[in-house]
């Protein structure tokens, strides 16, 4: 049977969670590992850590975070941000990360996906795609890199197909139009990629209500749904999200 995963995402800067998190009775709301363990206890199916540190000391801090996460989490977790090479991936996987997310580096040099896949298997290679609506590409969705600052002129659907036939075992697809709006995923974007690649697609960007998670699956055909703020701000637990999706007829792990 096919089941849909719910994945809380934590943005991490220099080893600390950015964007406020509003859990009661948490010792350190800035500690990504403690927050992730909380989501694990709530029934999260996976967790994604996105490292947005812009400095050079990023790598060691992130590897250290992954090492601690592996001691506390007994569900799969992905680390993305700043992964540029097989060696970067090796360090993270070696200490216990299950998957690595590759974004800008893969657009700049697509072969890095196949290189990591050849070494560790494509199941641990997540191509992270930031896409925005526009009229510059055939599908109407363009790939952006460098944290969404730089347009590439590359068609997002073409890139998703290319990346997943050359090493990526999963797509983390973020709608830049939706991100931060709380108006819902861009389900046209999600469907146009989920319907055209053979690997799982994680919808991301724009969740403001539990209905948006349902829409991401029913309209966007997503295999997994990612959300940040609705969980971080304590509006909903992962358990509530799952109950809501189950009510809508979507199979989720109880």
């Amino acid at each position: 049977m096919k089941s849909v995963r719910i994945i809380p995402c934590l943005d991490v800067d220099k080893g600390r969670v950015v964007k406020g998190v509003n859990f009661v009775d948490i010792r350190d709301a800035g500690d990504p590992v403690e927050l992730a363990a909380r989501y694990d206890a709530q029934g999260a199916d996976e967790v994604i850590f996105l490292d947005i540190t812009a400095s050079n000391e990023r790598r060691n801090t992130t590897v250290e975070m992954a090492r601690r996460a592996a001691e506390e989490l007994f569900i799969p977790f992905t680390v993305g941000g700043g992964v540029r090479s097989v060696e970067d991936a090796r360090k993270l996987l070696r200490v216990g990360a299950d998957k690595v997310g590759v974004n800008t580096a893969a657009v700049e040099r697509p072969a890095v996906l196949a290189e990591i896949a050849a070494e560790f298997g494509d199941q641990c290679v997540v191509v992270a795609i930031d896409a925005k609506r526009g009229d510059t590409t055939p599908s109407g969705f363009e790939v952006y890199v460098h944290g969404g600052r730089t347009p590439t002129g590359i068609d997002a659907v073409d890139w998703a197909i290319q990346a997943t036939t050359n090493g990526a075992g999963e797509v983390l697809l973020t709608s830049m139009d939706g991100d931060g709006t709380r108006a819902g995923y861009d389900n046209e974007l999600t469907a146009s990629i989920a319907d055209n690649v053979g690997v799982p697609v994680i919808a991301s960007g724009g969740v403001g209500t539990l209905d948006h998670l349902v829409d991401g699956v029913l309209d966007g055909h997503a295999d997994a749904v990612l959300a940040a703020s609705i969980f971080h701000f304590g509006e909903h637990t992962v358990g509530e999200a799952k109950a809501h999706m189950a009510q809508a007829g979507i199979t989720v792990r109880p």
Binding site: M1, K2, S3, V4, R5, D45, D122, Q123, G169, E170, G198, V199, P200, D223, A224, R253
Partner: peptide
């Protein structure tokens, strides 16, 4: 007939 890899929880 199914997505590969199977990357999910399953009973």
């Amino acid at each position: 007939t199914v997505k590969r890899p199977q990357m999910q929880w399953n009973p």
